[in-house]
Amino acid sequence: MVFTDDMKTCSQLSGGGGGEIQNQVNVSEQETSIVIRQEMRHLCIRLCLYVLLAKGLMASAEHVTGSLNGRVILPCTYSGTTTTMCWGRGGCPSSKCNYEIIWTDGTKVTWRKSDRYQLLGDIARGNVSLTIFGVTEEDEGTYCCRVEIPGWSNDQKIEHIVKIYEAPSPPEPTDQSVHTIHVPAVSGDVTVVGSVKDILTLPCNYIIHKNQHPMCWRRGGCSASGCYDDIIETDGRRVTWRESDRYQLLGDIIQGNVSLTITGVTREDEGTYCCRVEIYELFYYVKKEIKIQILNSNHSKETLYVF
């Protein structure tokens, strides 16, 4: 009898304890579920933040249009400490630039794919806008300006979409307009007239003989031999030295087009320039002197060649 009562008591205690344990299990599962939901919410927030940061300081793509054989300017500026940056073809990747065309170290250009790509602004002050000269249909597409800012996903990224159109026929010149006169190959002297901040081209061409020929440009008249105080030199195929990025040879050097382009001209650029081509096999030098004249700002800004 006592044994039976004890069994009932154990059974009652066991049954009651089992229910309490079950309740504790249910509470534990609910708490776990809440914790999991909170962790999932935090994970989603972190993923969203990561996606936003991965995009960097991305501005919406801007459209830039230009005409064949002309030039286009793709704006890109930044503020703060000077830093490295690059331009590339295609959209901005997660780091660096795709199909790189130009790099700077924050103060100057350290590499460029072609002289057609120029940074003519004040690089050290954050103006890294890209100018493309002699544009063709192949230049159409997306370009990425990437400024490398220290920190995780802090880079500034700007995309531009370039569209090239065929240039319209030029209007008939009027008495008030200054027009361009075509320049013959390396013979006779020329005066190039422009205004402050213009881009001026000093024509110089030569006929290719057996090989390409080294040449140079200098300030002042042509000397009896060589270039002194030169501003740009080539080996006949490419530019080997230049005093400043303001001096560019944008023509086909290999085909003998060594015309000098000077960007952002100032009154200090006035004067005489010498184009000198060394043709060794003929023991001959092609020498051409060109003068620059800067007009007052109220004159037309087109280029005039005066013979």
Rank of each mutant, 00 (worst) to 15 (best):
G141L: 04
E20N: 14
N154W: 04
P168N: 03
G236I: 05
N26H: 10
S153Q: 02
V2C: 05
V35R: 14
K113V: 01
V277A: 15
I21E: 02
P150H: 01
M85I: 10
E138N: 14
C274Y: 01
E289N: 09
V128R: 13
L74H: 08
N211I: 11
S223N: 08
T174S: 11
D230A: 09
T81Q: 10
L68D: 14
K108G: 05
E281S: 12
P93G: 06
L120P: 01
L260G: 01
V135E: 08
T32P: 00
R267L: 04
S114A: 11
R112E: 02
E159N: 14
C222G: 04
V2L: 04
V306M: 08
K163F: 09
C86R: 11
T65H: 07
V277L: 07
D229P: 01
S297Q: 10
G19N: 07
S169M: 00
R37C: 04
E140T: 13
E62C: 03
G271Q: 08
C145I: 05
G141N: 10
T266H: 04
G188D: 03
D115V: 12
V258E: 03
T83N: 01
W111N: 10
I208W: 01
Y117P: 08
H209M: 06
S94H: 15
G141W: 07
C86T: 12
G221I: 00
R41P: 00
T104Q: 08
R89K: 15
E159S: 10
T263M: 06
S169C: 00
Y117L: 06
P150C: 02
E166M: 02
S259N: 12
R218I: 01
D230R: 12
N26S: 13
V109K: 06
T107S: 14
S297Y: 09
C97V: 11
E29F: 09
R218L: 02
I207P: 00
S297E: 06
I34M: 06
V265R: 11
W152E: 10
R116C: 03
S129R: 07
E31M: 07
L68V: 11
Q12K: 11
I45T: 03
L200N: 01
Q212T: 15
A224C: 00
I45N: 01
I279T: 05
Q118A: 07
N26K: 12
L130A: 11
N26F: 05
I292V: 15
R237Q: 07
D6G: 15
I45C: 00
I208P: 03
T32I: 12
R242E: 02
V2I: 09
I149D: 05
G141H: 09
V128G: 06
I73C: 06
C275G: 05
V258Y: 04
Q118S: 14
A224H: 00
N205M: 04
C97L: 09
P168M: 03
N23M: 13
L57H: 12
L249P: 07
E31A: 15
V192K: 13
M1F: 10
L119N: 06
T65L: 01
W152L: 09
C97Q: 11
Q118H: 05
S153F: 07
K288G: 06
K301V: 07
S297L: 08
V2Y: 09
A224W: 00
V35K: 13
I253N: 03
